[in-house]
Every structure is written in C-alpha cells, then in structure tokens.
C-alpha cells in the first residue's frame, strides 16, 4: 500500500537577480495520504501546489520538513503528469513512452501500446508529438505516467492549458484509466469543479503554502460536472474558501 507522508514541509526560494526578495512557497505543510485514493490539492495560483508536487516527486529539495513516499516500506515508484505534456519532440509517441520505461522488452512495448489504447491513441504511436493536437499530447503524458506502473501518481494541473471541451474529455479518460488501476493519486488543481469531479478527498491550500482544510468527497463514480451532488460539494468548497479569505483579510486588518 502506498503512503505519502508530509511533515511540516517548508520551501523558501532565495532572492534572485530578477526577483530580489525571498519567496515562501510552502509554509509548514503536513498531510498524509494512504491507500488507493485520489486526493486533490486545491489552491489559487501562488499557493505552492507545483512546488509541493515537485518535492514529493523528489525533483526539488525542501528548505525544512520531511517527505516520505513509500510502498510497503520501500521508496515508491512515482508517475508524473505535468502541466505541459513534456514529450521529446524528436521521438515518436511510442519512443516517448518507452523513454521512461526501465524494463526494455517486447512486454514493455506491449504495455506502452496498451496504455496508449486506454487513452484512445493506438493509431498514432508512430507519429511525432508535433503532429498531435495539444489534447492528444497530454493524453500521451497521462499514458506515460501509468506505464511506469507507479505506486503513486502525481498530476500537476494537467488540464489547465486545455479548452473546456478538451479538458472534459481528458478528465473522462483519466477517470476511466484511474478506475481501472486505482493508483494512489495526488492531483494539483486550481479548478474547484475538477477537484470535486475527480477526488475522494480535497486538501485546500492558501497562498503561502498552508493547508487550511481537508474535505472528503463521498460521491459515486463516474461523476459528471452537472450532477447535483457534485454541484453541492463545489458550493461547499467555495464557501470554505470564502471563509478562509475573509479570515485572512480580518487577520490582516487586526494586525
């Protein structure tokens, strides 16, 4: 069983020549995610969502605090879906899949083809990324993350650069593939509807990188954005955001 354990995580970026002030991206985040759950981290721009994900993925070092990402006591394999597809433009779709695959065999190729078929891209495995639409490229990005058979799946606003229709289609693909694999997923987004549609649990971050709420979403899957129950949870999430903002404003005035 995969576990993500985050304790008092802080990240402060030092001043740079272009921005001469230090920036606190995360201000003591603590949370834990265990089992085959889909957790959304919801927050506005600048709340440290991407930084949090990069630290969990091990590609960035925290300033303070600790992160453990384990599967049955050993370091977990991580799959990452980025905001942009991040495909090698000079490699075919299939080669891009195999680039992250550590086992090289006929079987790994079959697995790559399987996950491409799951995102509806069987016919384009031989094409280069530039020959695909942005949505198709992002579907390759999703398939690639599942190909490494991850214990933990990290997703950084993967649909934020898509138009509404494309984003909806990609969410459908993600729901289907996730329902099939049931990986432990940490999904970062600023879209309330997206978080409610996909997640079992929503962690809410406020600017400065502080978790201020943790909302369970106990709704049946698959969910549609126009379901009344989904709408009701969305309203509740927004209400809590408004309360948090009011509290922050009130605190500022008091200070």
């Amino acid at each position: 069983m995969a576990t993500i354990l985050i304790e008092n995580l802080t990240k402060v970026y030092p001043p740079t020549p272009t921005y001469p002030q230090q920036v606190q991206a995360l201000g003591g985040v603590s949370m834990s995610v265990t089992g085959n759950v889909f957790v959304a981290v919801l927050g506005p721009s600048g709340s440290g969502k991407t930084t949090l994900l990069n630290i969990v993925a091990g590609v960035e070092e925290p300033t303070a605090g600790a992160v453990r990402v384990v599967q049955d006591g050993v370091p977990a394999q991580v799959g990452y879906v980025f905001q942009e597809p991040r495909l090698l433009p000079w490699r075919s779709v299939l080669d891009n899949m195999l680039y992250v695959q550590n086992r090289k065999s006929d079987r790994s190729k079959r697995e790559a083809e399987f996950y491409l078929s799951m995102v509806g891209l069987s016919d384009v495995a031989h094409l280069y990324p530039a020959q695909l639409s942005a949505g198709m490229q992002q579907r390759v990005g999703i398939a690639r993350a599942f190909l490494v058979n991850p214990d933990v799946l990290l997703m950084d606003e993967p649909f934020s650069h898509m138009d509404a229709l494309t984003g909806r289609s990609l969410r459908d693909y993600l729901q289907r593939i996730w329902a099939h694999t049931r990986k432990t997923a940490l999904f970062v987004t600023h879209d309330v509807g997206e978080a409610v549609e996909l997640a079992d649990r929503i962690l809410m971050l406020r600017p400065g990188g502080v978790v201020f709420d943790d909302i369970p979403v106990n709704l049946q899957r698959p969910r549609r954005p126009d379901d009344a129950a989904v709408r009701a949870v969305e309203t509740e999430v927004l209400r809590r955001f408004d309360s948090m903002e009011a509290a922050v404003r009130f605190g500022d005035q008091r200070n």
């Binding site: 990069n54 993925a57 590609v59 991580v78 980025f82 942009e84 991040r86 992250v100 990290l154």
Partner: peptide, 9 residues
C-alpha cells in the same frame, strides 16, 4: 522541463 521530466521518472 524535459530534464525535470527525466528526473521525475
């Protein structure tokens, strides 16, 4: 970003 992707995987 491609180097970061390679790091992550």
């Amino acid at each position: 970003g491609l180097a970061l992707m390679s790091d992550a995987f």
